[in-house]
Write a protein that binds this DNA or RNA. Sequence first.
DNA 1: TCTTTTTTTTGATTGCAATCACAGAAACTT
DNA 2: AAGTTTCTGTGATTGCAATCAAAAAAAAGA
Lengths: 239, 239
Amino acid sequence: MTETCNCNNCRNELCIRKVPIFSTLNQEDVGKIASLINHRDYKKGETILFDGDYTDSVVIINEGSAKAYKNTPDGREQILYVFSEGDFFGEQNLLGNKTATFSVEALQPVNTCILSRGQFQKLLYSYPEIAVKIIEELSGRMARLETALQSMGVRNVDTRVGGILLEFATKYSTKTNEGTLIHLPLSREGIANYLGVARETLSRKLGQLENEGLIRSVNNKEILIPNMQAIELLAGAGY
Amino acid sequence: MTETCNCNNCRNELCIRKVPIFSTLNQEDVGKIASLINHRDYKKGETILFDGDYTDSVVIINEGSAKAYKNTPDGREQILYVFSEGDFFGEQNLLGNKTATFSVEALQPVNTCILSRGQFQKLLYSYPEIAVKIIEELSGRMARLETALQSMGVRNVDTRVGGILLEFATKYSTKTNEGTLIHLPLSREGIANYLGVARETLSRKLGQLENEGLIRSVNNKEILIPNMQAIELLAGAGY
DNA sequence: TCTTTTTTTTGATTGCAATCACAGAAACTT
DNA sequence: AAGTTTCTGTGATTGCAATCAAAAAAAAGA
């Protein structure tokens, strides 16, 4: 039961403990569920789920991160979510034999926990609190989508860039004495595909923000924000 | 217990029966829940929920339709959903004292059923099947949002107009011998705000589609589509 | 360390939709 | 039915981001 135990059950328990939707369970229940779990590893760039595929399992990200995206009719890739530790997907296909509504690709080496649909359904009926947790999680994800949709409706691209900097700052940043350091989960191209703009446009906008002193591009994976309020202004009424 | 009964309980039962999330309940349970419900009417144009407000209730649309929207920083209004009979909102605020993430405004005279948060929560714990239904409903709504986001990422506006015609055709149309007749739930301005384009642009695109014979604008509330496949083509690989 | 490949930036140009302005049509008001 | 208000369509213009093209920088591989 220690963290160094390598038996499968203990590994699975560790995995479950990371996931917010199981956070209300006691030790005994965690143990029960742990035995139902399978694992799978993916290399960076590997596709975990294909848009349109039939799936009969719920996948929980145990380690690493992944992007969920849809291909647009005009050949672009629209990123919908960046999943990281504790996030899950595949719950869409709970009842009806629905197919996946997006593809998921590993951004780094990823380890997943897999629950079959049947097992997941049983859980929902035996543990209403899990269902409530899931509703909460889905509600949060919807709020994010709604904000993204609102943002896509904004004509002014500067505002949208500010918005994504703000989002990343709240999720992927550390405080330093020079300001907020964002550890970007996506490449420039990825960010552009998340924002729904051309890669070149994002490049220019970031360059412009750097000239204005609002950001400092430390390297391709990190951006420093000396003054967060300025970015909030940009994202808010910034125009 | 007949449809003409006017006692409050019966009215509420009718209301509940319309809502998919309660569809799995038996007569007795429906009766129990019915007694918990309150009603409220809204005139066309009235705001049912204000973005940012604290709410402690779940609202179910019993009659009429409403738009859910967010105001963008640049002063536009981005429509997120068109709610009609059986749709619900306010479930975001299940646990935490979260505030509304969008505003809701009646598009027609609207009658609502209202459940307090506490009552709603109890229902979830007593009837796991309701929770599952809600997860299903939320999943469907998310799929819609994801598609909308994908669509917003498409540069080609023609494709997006095609997409919304397709969406409306599946939800608000009747078949006639001249083709599919769409009963528009929104004004031109509303549709533009749903698509995230300027009203004038939509006007021009629709005019163009009419010239090409793809649609026929019967009046401001109805559009006839003689050949649905052509619209599918437009929405799909249309460019 | 040097080469190869991938990613990012920068430059020049173009095209499309936003915006402004107004006319015309439709929907309410009394 | 006339007048008022709101909604919709059309024209002219502009601006911004997409696109094309290529250099520069960073990452991966040998």
